[in-house]
Structures are given as C-alpha cells and as structure tokens.
Nucleic acid binder design. Structure first.
Lengths: 242, 242
DNA sequence: CACATCTTAATGGTAAGACCATTACTCCCC
DNA sequence: GGGGAGTAATGGTCTTACCATTAAGATGTG
C-alpha cells in the first residue's frame, strides 16, 4: 500500500531531477544547471529545497556553484570526485565505520594496483616528483608531522603516476583518510628515528623499482612497506578487537 | 593577504563544527546532534544554513535525520557509508569522470581481494546465499536485466563474505556503479544466450573454489570472469579512446 | 568607431518568520 | 494502571526580504 511509501522530500525531488539527467547523459561535466529560482519553479518546490539538493550533490563532488551573472555564475556539473571521496572516507574512518585493519588490507590491494600501473606508466615528471619527495624526506630536520605529510605526498605521487583515475582517487582518498590515525600511531612509537630511517630506505627501494620498471619488485615492496609500517604502529590495532 | 581567503560559507561553518567533533571523537555513531535551531544559535548562523550542512553530511552517509520529539527525532550520526559511496561512484561513472577501463582495473583488484578474503572467511550462510543465487541464475526464463541483477547480487554476496567492511563496501559500490553500463554492454551483444551460459559456468567455478578454500584458484577465476566479460562488451571500450 | 563609465539584471548566499506533520512526554481522568 | 487530551520538541517546507558578486547592456566622450 502507498502507506508504506513515504512521500519524497522536496529536496529529494530536486536531487532525482538532476540525477536523472546525469544518468541519461543530458547533463555532462561543464553543463550549467538552471538557476536555483528557475529550478525551484520547474520542479515545483521552494528555493531552499533546491539549495539543499545542490548541497547534497555538491557533497558528492558532482556540482559546484558560484555567485554572479553570466557564464561564471550559477551551478555547474563538476568533474572532481577526489575531494568528495576523501572527505567521505576520512569521516567514516574517524567514526570507526571502517576498522583500520580493513582499511590497511584495502590500501595494500589498491596501492599494489597503483604501483603496478605506475611502474609501467610513470613519466619522467612523475619520477622526478617522487625523487624530490625522497630528497625532502631525507632531511633530518623534519618533524614527524612534516615527514608524514611528505610520506603521504609520495604515496599520492605514485598513485597519480598510475594513469588510472579511479585507482588514483581511491588510493589518495584512503591514504588521506588514514593521515591522522597514522600520525597518532607514529607518535606512540618508542623510537621514531629508527622507524623514520626504515621508512626512508623502503621509499627509496620502491621508487628505484618503479624507475627501473621492475613491476613485481615494486609491488612487493609497496606491500611490505604498508604492512610493516602498520605492524609497527600497535596503537592502530586497538580497533581490531572491537 | 586575507584578500585571498574567501570567508567561509555559513553552512561550511556548521559542517566544520560537526566534522571537528567527529574527528575528535566527541561524536560517534549513534550520537545525537543538537537540534537544528540550537545548532544554528550555537554556531551563530541561520537554521537554513544548518539544514544545508546536514544535507552535505547526509550525502556523505554521516548523518541521518528524523522528525519528532524524543530519541527517535533529530539528527544522529550514522554508520552506513555504503549507499553514499555507491551513489557517489555511480554519478561519477555516469559523468565519465571514471573511465570504464579504469573502473574495470580497480574492480579486478578489489574483487580479487574480496574473493581472497571470502575464500577463507565465508560462513555456511554466506556460501548458501551464493549457491541460491547460482540456482536463480540457472533459470532459463530470466530476462537479461533480471540476470544482471542477480549477477550483481552474487558479486555483492562474495564481497560481503569477505569480512572486511571497506573492501565489501567499495566492491559493492563499484559494481553497482557499473550496473547500467554493464546492462547496456550486455544488450549490445550479438548472442546473449551464449554469453549467459559462459557467465554461469564461471560463477559456478568461482563459488566452488571459494567453497573449497582454493584461494588462488578463486582469485584467478574472479579476475578472469571480470576481464573476459569486459572484453566481450565492446561498447564499454568506447570510453577508452576518449 | 573605440573605450570608459554607469546602470541594470542575474545569480548564489543568507536570514527571519511562519506554518505543518510527526513523535514523545506529561498530566488528568476513569 | 490504562487511556486520552494537551503540549512541546523536532525536522520539513515555504515565503519574503535583502546582500554581494558578476556580467551584460546602455550611455557618454574622445
């Protein structure tokens, strides 16, 4: 009976209206949506409902908005999913909806894929970027937090050298979602300096294997790198028993 | 200079307020947020701004709202990321922000992981569910769309047997994001019947290997299954040249 | 005719206020 | 103790008004 079907919320009608046109191909990246006032009239809801719908799809990385008349103003379809992915995963990791052992397993699988692809596809610019990051991380003056940022940057650089958009975005999103937990895990270590030295050596090995197109070696090294780092950070394992 | 820093939008202030408390651990799954009116006052914005912020985090699968007084009403922290993930990926696949060859590679990596985990962790109930789906799919009377739904259901069942929340949710989200493109690809095939028979045989092999804990066999079979299906659906490759 | 300036309009951003439907809680009566 | 009525809390929705930004159009000047 229709009693079981709750009437759709006004903002949901707008979301559906927009999604339908995305799925049908009518809206593509760069397409301009009707103005909020026009869309409200067209769908038969109020302008705040349109705004709530826009916010929903903005959170999905699908829409972006700007004030002003002409081509720069209004709401357009966006082609930038990675920030939305990153935010989503970071929040759910923080809420422990994804336990860190699970995240680590997935990281291994995805970074194996990214590293495999990067070892055959990385450009000279990609490789130079990795080497720059290695050099920065070899500076003994870095704080742990700074080192972690560059460490993340190296993983991001490898992912971006993969030439696979989804693999890159997912790899980046998952690594970023673990930034704070990893930093906390490093902070709890008895000996940061020796850990840092091990991480550095591993980074060098990975980049060397990628540079030499030694695909299987690179893949094995990235996996070993992630697993051994995780194993060291015993504070991250607290989730596992939960 | 501060000229370069745009003032934060009112709804962004609320999103930040909520995110900060999630990241700090103050809010956990099940936590109740202050009422919209209270939150508006506390953050110093209007209630519509709060609603827009709630919509943002709802789209990230982080919040859910209900009308009414008492424990059932209000806005609470949610622990259900998979729908948000699925929606996000589906929209971006539809917008061609993730080309289908990229998606297929990532599917292979993730379904290898899910299948590996499932072959050691699947319960009797998980296996029975897979066998039920095999049996349903062996019915010659199914339409292509119905078969595709159950095919998706099998991939979902394997992913859920993995016992790794993130792997499951990502595998499911990615498979679901490809549901319509796969259906279109199947529709364009010259001989659906022979394809269906091949898919069925492959499904049986995968489930048998999982059941027998033949991990490496199961992993190889799921990869072959995905790759060969993708290779058959030439209409999906149109993206590759884009 | 080209350029500069001003005016106007379009657009998203924001807030206040009013009202509605749902839900639970409290109080009163039997 | 149970049932019913009243009240309050909550999200849901809409209307109205205003603001800041941006571009387009109109007007004036050289």
């Amino acid at each position: 009976m229709s009693d079981d079907v709750a009437p759709k919320k006004a903002w949901q009608l707008v979301v559906d209206w927009i999604e339908q046109r995305i799925l049908s191909g009518e809206f593509a990246v760069g397409s301009h949506l009707p103005a909020e006032r026009d869309l409200a009239q067209r769908v038969g809801v109020s302008r705040p409902a349109v705004r709530e719908a826009v916010r929903t799809l903005q959170a999905n990385g699908v829409l972006q908005s700007a004030v002003g008349a002409g081509a720069t103003g209004g709401t357009t379809i966006s082609g930038v999913p990675h920030q939305a992915l990153t935010r989503l995963l970071r929040l759910h990791v923080a809420l422990a909806n994804f336990p860190t052992p699970d995240v680590t397993e997935v990281r291994v699988a995805l970074e194996r894929l990214s590293t495999r692809l990067a070892s055959t596809r990385a450009t000279d610019a990609d490789l130079a970027r990795m080497r720059d990051l290695l050099e920065v991380m070899d500076d003994d003056g870095l704080t742990m937090a700074e080192f972690n940022n560059h460490d993340t940057g190296l993983h991001v650089a490898i992912a971006e050298a993969a030439g696979n958009r989804l693999a890159s975005d997912l790899t980046i999103a998952i690594r970023e979602s673990m930034r704070l937990p990893i930093l906390a895990g490093l902070d709890a270590l008895p000996d940061w300096i020796s850990t840092r030295d091990i991480l550095r050596a591993q980074h060098h090995g990975i980049v060397a294997a990628i540079t030499a197109h030694e695909t299987e070696a690179a893949v094995a090294l990235i996996e070993e790198h992630i697993r051994s780092a995780y194993a060291r950070m015993t504070s991250l394992h607290a989730d596992a028993g939960g």
